[in-house]
Design a protein around this nucleic acid. Structure first.
Ligand SMILES: [Mn+2]
Ligand SMILES: [Mn+2]
Ligand SMILES: [Zn+2]
Ligand SMILES: [Zn+2]
Lengths: 157, 157
DNA sequence: AAAGATAATGGAAACCATTTTCATTTAGGA
DNA sequence: TCCTAAATGAAAATGGTTTCCATTATCTTT
């Protein structure tokens, strides 16, 4: 799994985790570890397969449970790109990447993060959110923006 | 199911359906009928339950198959609001409502269509799409925008 | 450093929306 | 009306996710 040399994000999240009344366990630390190392959008099984060689005792069930908690705590986001399984990614923050949106290729399933063009989008979203909040008395805490189409590789064929 | 007095959207879609090499059947007409009558976002089973009293012979399987075709033809959109089942809605067009985005309540699951604030959004999206297309050589044909939060009713409690 | 209370775990089974299979029926051109 | 490929329903299969429950591990209290 390649800790490299440091402690992984375990230490960092330890507090946040415990602060919410959860215990810190090997499995939970491993999941966080994998997620913070990853640069793709991982499924529960992806995470399981990365953890398993190192900690064979940790089961898929626990990974699902940990992911649920992390989503609720707000440390990760859960996405459905339409491939039949949920995918997870660290939220923006100290250890997370910056807030971004997604390009989803309907040909090969590739998902591209983009962080350009975001500033304007977010500015407009703020305005839109304000309008919607007022009109519908709807408290918005999150948004999802995805573009669907064909990626470079799929365009060529 | 309440045809009222007309023929439903069957006639209208008959051509489009046949034009793509598909045969027109009672079940397919019924699905289109229900979808065009609906003002909510229906699941396959929702549609089945509306059709069943009138056409008990039509099975859920066929409804799934019809919905797949309609999505591919582009007559309907398929959404995942995170409730564990897909939901469907007529695309914009002669018989469909106008293009819109969604507010999804994480409390009660309600989904609100909004058509205000769309013009500006779409304008920005166009611009964003152009930028992304160029940068990633990604051909965008669709987008998904959803806001998550708490609806009026859920805010009060 | 132990013990106790209770949260967390893994493996198997259950769940459940959707898909596949396949024998039968149907639509629609000839 | 006939014919053939497309469409269908019922049942079984699929596969990601959840639930169950007996066992284990964490962390607080001694
Ligand atoms: Mn991403
Ligand atoms: Mn809608
Ligand atoms: Zn692609
Ligand atoms: Zn609500």
């Amino acid at each position: 799994m390649g800790h490299g040399h440091g402690k992984g994000p375990g230490q960092w999240c330890h507090g946040k985790f415990r602060g919410c009344g959860y215990r810190m366990t090997t499995g939970r630390e491993a999941v966080l570890d994998v997620l913070s190392q990853a640069n793709e959008h991982l499924s529960a099984e992806d995470i399981y397969m990365k953890i398993h060689p190192v900690y064979p005792a940790i089961g898929l069930t626990s990974i699902y449970r940990t992911l649920d908690i992390l989503v609720n705590i707000g440390l990760i986001h859960k996405f459905d790109f339409g491939h039949g399984r949920a995918r997870y990614e660290l939220t923006e923050g100290p250890k997370g990447k910056r807030h971004h949106h997604h390009l989803v290729c309907t040909g090969c399933g590739r998902v591209i993060d983009y962080t350009d063009f975001i500033d304007e989008e977010v500015a407009l979203l703020k305005k839109t959110e304000e309008g919607l909040s007022k009109k519908y008395n709807f408290r918005i805490d999150n948004h999802l923006i995805q573009f669907y189409g064909l990626c470079d590789a799929c365009n060529r064929s």
